[in-house]
Amino acid sequence: MGTLETLKLAGVGAGDEVVVPAYGNAEVARVVVELGAVPVFGDVDGGSYCLDPAAVSDVVTGRTAAVVAVHRFGRRAEAGRLREVGERHGLLVRVVEEPGTDPEGAEPGAVELRREHVTYLDSRLRGVRTPEAAVGHTYERYVVRVPGNGRPDRDAFARALRAKGVACAVPVPAPVYRMPGLRRDVVLPETERAVDETLALPVHAGMSRRELHRMVSMCNALGGLLSPAF
């Protein structure tokens, strides 16, 4: 059952508030708006990029009816802690897959190859912060942080990699609360930092070890020019 149907069956509607992640896709927030309810943006955990249960507690009000969390980049949201928050406040909690991903559809061999690539990158990349390890992480996207003073450093880093043929991408270009039709006058620090610093590097199963080594060499050469901000 989809998020829209779940919220409808729970009676969520006009005047209700639904806590949603501030970092990631806008689809969940737009579903809330479609119901006539109000999306309230919660900050994310800086390691998982998923909705932070503590941040949910910070934004719950008497009008809050539900929480919708999203698994991000193959990392699972903290469903247990989120449900504890929900039980404490009497809220519906829904945890969904990231739009556009199909974790059940990948061939097992492809997933294992991707994890091998991740292990190689984790052990060799310097000058960027590699993804936080977690049980069950499938690395749908391999998202690093580029240290420095925010977006100009990350964007310059990305341009230099693309110029050498590395298909990197900024995974989330703006907080959801700055997107058209969803604008709110809030600033959430972990979300802002994640938007400014994150970069997705290619890690698909078809990559050769030579391609991975070349990407590592380029990243390390660029990263060495930046001052770590960890």
Rank of each mutant, 00 (worst) to 15 (best):
V176A: 12
A10Y: 12
A205K: 08
P53V: 01
M179Y: 10
V67N: 06
T119K: 08
A160T: 00
D196W: 03
A205P: 13
V96C: 09
P189V: 01
V186Q: 09
V172G: 02
L92F: 12
V68H: 05
G148K: 02
V176L: 05
V146P: 10
S217K: 01
V216F: 03
P171D: 11
S227A: 14
A54M: 09
V68M: 02
T119W: 02
L51D: 10
V96W: 09
A169N: 01
E98R: 05
E140S: 08
P99Q: 08
A26W: 01
T138N: 15
C50M: 03
V67R: 04
A169G: 09
R88C: 07
T61M: 14
A169Y: 00
A79E: 15
A77Y: 03
E190D: 08
P171M: 04
Y142V: 04
G24A: 06
V95Q: 12
R129Q: 14
R209H: 12
P173Y: 06
Y120R: 11
Y139T: 06
P189D: 09
A156C: 04
P108K: 05
L91V: 06
R81G: 11
T198R: 02
R162S: 05
R124D: 04
T138I: 03
G100S: 02
L182Q: 09
G2S: 15
V40W: 09
A106W: 11
A26D: 14
L35M: 13
R209C: 11
S48N: 07
E112Q: 15
G100K: 08
V70H: 05
R30H: 00
R209T: 06
V203F: 00
A156T: 09
V96S: 08
A29S: 10
V166S: 02
L121S: 06
N149Q: 15
T191I: 04
E87T: 04
A55G: 09
V85Q: 11
G165I: 04
S57R: 14
V85F: 09
L225D: 15
D16H: 15
F41T: 07
P108M: 10
A163S: 14
V135T: 08
V33P: 07
T64C: 13
A69Y: 05
L225G: 15
E87L: 11
F73L: 01
M1K: 08
V31E: 12
G42L: 04
T3A: 13
L201K: 00
V96N: 05
F41A: 06
M218F: 02
V170G: 03
A229Y: 01
S57L: 13
Y139H: 14
T130E: 10
R115Q: 15
T119Y: 00
A29Y: 08
G224Q: 03
V144Y: 03
C168T: 01
R184N: 07
E116I: 03
V187I: 06
P202Y: 00
S123K: 12
L222V: 08
G86A: 09
L222E: 11
D102Y: 14
V59P: 14
V186G: 00
G24N: 08
E97I: 07
A77E: 06
L161V: 02
L201F: 04
A221C: 06
D45W: 05
A110N: 15
A205N: 10
T101A: 06
G165L: 01
T138P: 11
L92E: 14
V67F: 05
R81E: 15
D58Y: 11
V28A: 12
D196C: 01
R209N: 14
T6D: 12
G127H: 04
A174G: 04
